[in-house]
Each structure stands twice: as C-alpha cells, then as structure tokens.
Design a protein around this nucleic acid. Sequence first.
DNA 1: TGGCTAATCTGCAACCGCTGCAGATTAGGA
DNA 2: TCCTAATCTGCAGCGGTTGCAGATTAGCCA
Lengths: 157, 157
Amino acid sequence: MSASTVILVLAPAELTRAFRARGLKVTPQRQLLFSLLHCNETHPTAEALFAVASKLMPGISLRTVYQTLNDLAAMGELQVVQSAGGSTRFDPNVADHHHAQCDRCGELHDVYVDDLDRLEVSNLAGFRTDRARIVFGGLCAACQSPKPTKKTTKQRS
Amino acid sequence: MSASTVILVLAPAELTRAFRARGLKVTPQRQLLFSLLHCNETHPTAEALFAVASKLMPGISLRTVYQTLNDLAAMGELQVVQSAGGSTRFDPNVADHHHAQCDRCGELHDVYVDDLDRLEVSNLAGFRTDRARIVFGGLCAACQSPKPTKKTTKQRS
DNA sequence: TGGCTAATCTGCAACCGCTGCAGATTAGGA
DNA sequence: TCCTAATCTGCAGCGGTTGCAGATTAGCCA
C-alpha cells in the first residue's frame, strides 16, 4: 500500500521524538496512531483505534496497532487500563490521574485525586508501594437520567 | 465419575446456605470449591483453583469451576479482581478492602484503607460514585530482598 | 541521490481465557 | 422411591492478543 502518501495530520512531536530517541522508526502508520491518541479521552481499545485508523489509512493492520500501543505503553507514554469487560483500554493521559467507570454504559472517565498519600493503609506486611490506581464505580451523568442514551461498551454479565 | 463418594472437607456452611437459599443445588464439586476458597488469600485464578481441585477430585471440569466462581461472584460472595496479566482473579474476602500487586512476582495482597471517603476527587462531571477500588503497585516484602525467590504468577511483558 | 540494513508492516495461524451448547447425571423435594 | 429441574462434563467456538515469516521501508552514510 502507498501508506507514505497519506499525510493526514501532524503527528504529536513529543511521541515522534520519544520514538526516535529510542532508535525506533517513525512510520506513517505510527504517526497516524499518535495523532489519533493525541488528546483522546475515550480510552479506546486497540480494536476501536484500529477501526478509526482503517478509515483514514485503509490497509493498516490490527497487528500494527497492537504493536504501536505496546511500544508506547512500554515507554510510559500510555497508561494501560485493565477494565472489566475483557479488552484492554489505552489512555494517552499520562498525568497522575485515576478513573471512574460507569456501571451501566461501561465508559471510563478521568478523575483526579489530590491527597492520595494521606490515606491510611494497613496490612501492608512489608509491601513497599510506590503508586496507586483507583477505579471508582457508579453511574455517569448520562446514565443517571431516566432514559440512558448510550451503550458504548459491551459489558460481560 | 463417583464424585459423590468424595467427601473431603466440610463445606463452609455460609456458602452452602447461600446457594440453597437461591434454589441452587449444593453438589460435591461446589462443596470442594467452597472449601478451597475458604480463607484462601492467594487470589487464585480459575485455572489455579481447577489445578488444586483436580487433584482432590479427579475429573472435575474446568467448566464447573468457572460456573461456580461466576455464581459466587453474582451473589456477592466473591470479589472479582481484574489484575494485570490477563486472567481474572477471585477473592473470597468480601470485607471492604483493596489490593497491592507486586511489580515483580505479580502477587496480590489484601490491604485495608480507612479514610477513603475523605479523598478529594475532582473532574467528576456529574459522575456519581458509590465505591472505589484501589490497586497499589510496588514490591512485596519477598521481592525487596536481593534474591527474590518466587515467581508465582506469569506476567505479560 | 542512491544504496544498505535493521526496523517495521502485513497477513495469518495460533494461543489463552472464557463461554455456549447438548447430552448424561444427580440433588433434593414430593 | 420417583421425578424434574439443576448441574456436570466435554467440546467447540469466540474475542482479544501475540508469534512468525516474508515483503516493505525509514533513516543513516557515502
């Protein structure tokens, strides 16, 4: 395929730099994925990203999407979120934050927690923790109203 | 197989009662699983439970293990923990608690957090939370020493 | 600019965790 | 003891993910 002829968006410079700095090559496929992830707050799955990428660059392989996401995660440019429901979500927001997942639609929201280190944790038994990840459960704003409209994520029973 | 002739341990009465109360039957397979889960702090996977159960009751099916675990989870007698590394872990500790996962060996430890509701959470945007689940990351006591000994859980790279 | 080479891409097969199904078995009430 | 619905087992199949191999290409160097 003539992927190199497709130049849709400017790839976020930061990720491009990070890849080059590690001796990794910056291909059009990767640039596209960088741009799709940039400021993306939907916590997409690999499959979801692939669907969007395919429209913009027909022929791109799901394998490539996984590869790039794993590379980004390995270099800390992506947070991997293991949410209920099977597939892994990827979060390009690398700021220190946490998540709230809606019990009904399954959607993930970024939330920020201020005073985490003030928590009193017991039963650590020698465990030395250096970070924490919180997932809040409940109902998102949309699903609290009588007629919930979206069902964006499949949930296993 | 003559499963009914195997009576290894007293099934925890609570789970037996809970099953009967819902019109579910209490079979030798279930009794065995109840007893394997009782006071079990290893956060086993279905596969791990199946391995132990198979030794005590040869012929028991992995399908049955999944079925029973799902039943228990559905009735709230089991906490389902979606840990990094693919497979689901099951936690018979239904007290309000959280987890610490070791970066090296992957093992999960129960921890207790006292003042969760004092956390200041921002960016909720209408999300109404009713619970939180925290997973701390770090190193367990065993893996902090120079020669870590166990590698009980496989971790994906 | 052209050539070289290691990194990458794609397509496919396979793996893993888990579930649906159907026929055989059995718990537990009448 | 009998009956029936619940359960068990084995297997096939599914969704998500990864390994592999051959074709392609980014990026360095002359």
